[in-house]
Design a protein around this nucleic acid. Structure first.
Lengths: 150, 150
DNA sequence: TGAAAATTGTCAACAGAGAAACAATCTACC
DNA sequence: GGTAGATTGTTTCTCTGTTGACAATTTTCA
């Protein structure tokens, strides 16, 4: 019986690195789920909202492919995201010199939507991070930065 | 023109909390993508591998619903995950006293697969976390723990 | 005991996202 | 100028995963 156990199961002694990694993925996963849930109340995905925020942050109308780059999403998906946002009148496609390109910009309605909802979004971010002191938040930010670069 | 800018765009001054949160989600997202990529080489999802690891870590055969709980996946999805793993002969369903229940356990083949692949998986975890010192990894682990509890 | 409620696994329907194929257009280079 | 190759957006296909409905069971408790 003991022998069976020994031949059957790989011994696991998770390194610090692996423990941290797993926890990192778990926290990330939870945050994405919560984020999805939050935006679901408006019939949107976090990705839709992401598009709106990118447009809100952009000084000028930007190309779909550029949106895709900023949010690590495929061109195909951006097409669909913008389709929905256009149906909702949050966003508008503009022609430009290059006829392959769609420029996208926020409509006034889209801008108003962001204006109305962003505070709550940011508030809930603060809420999520509340278990950490400001210094700890900074530390976390720094450590994650090293991971992103490395 | 200036007025248009002002009425149209919400001013954004991301708090430390929000910056950390965003970075956390970004890192998490990247890790999940890498993880997917890694397991794709065996025709599996990270979720499939997760099932295998859970079974590997379990002392006895466990129920599907329990697997679902441990990995935050729906019952329906566990059914399909186990279906595939069963086709691959990595896993076996057993009847038990409660006739609603399927117990699931690793086959020898599944155990061997874990044994053969786990070191590489763990190795790549160490690689991912390399930009951080051991102490930093511990700090990260602790901070994330607070977030999970909070 | 026996009926209502809960649990478990499965199936069908659906939504989100990536990959590949495609058409339209632009760029580079001869 | 003109052709080969790159870029952009869209469409189609496919893959995961969730939800909700369902059937089979088990549990609860009146």
């Amino acid at each position: 019986m003991l022998r069976t156990e020994m031949t059957k199961k790989v011994k696991i002694t998770p390194s610090v690195a692996e423990q941290a990694l797993i926890r990192l993925m778990r926290v990330g996963d939870r945050l994405w789920r919560e984020s999805d849930e939050r935006f679901g109340q408006w019939g949107l995905t976090d990705n839709h909202y992401n598009v709106l925020r990118i447009l809100n942050g952009a000084a000028e109308p930007i190309r779909q492919v550029e949106i895709g780059r900023k949010m690590l999403s495929s061109r195909a998906n951006v097409t669909k995201l913008v389709d929905l946002l256009e149906d909702r009148k949050f966003v508008r496609r503009l022609a430009c010199g290059d006829r392959r390109v769609n420029l996208v910009e926020l409509t006034d309605e889209g801008a108003k939507f962001i204006e109305d909802t962003l505070p709550a979004i940011i508030g809930s971010a603060n809420e999520t991070m509340k278990p950490l002191t400001r210094d700890e938040q900074k530390t976390l930010f720094t450590l994650l930065g090293k991971l992103l670069e490395g």
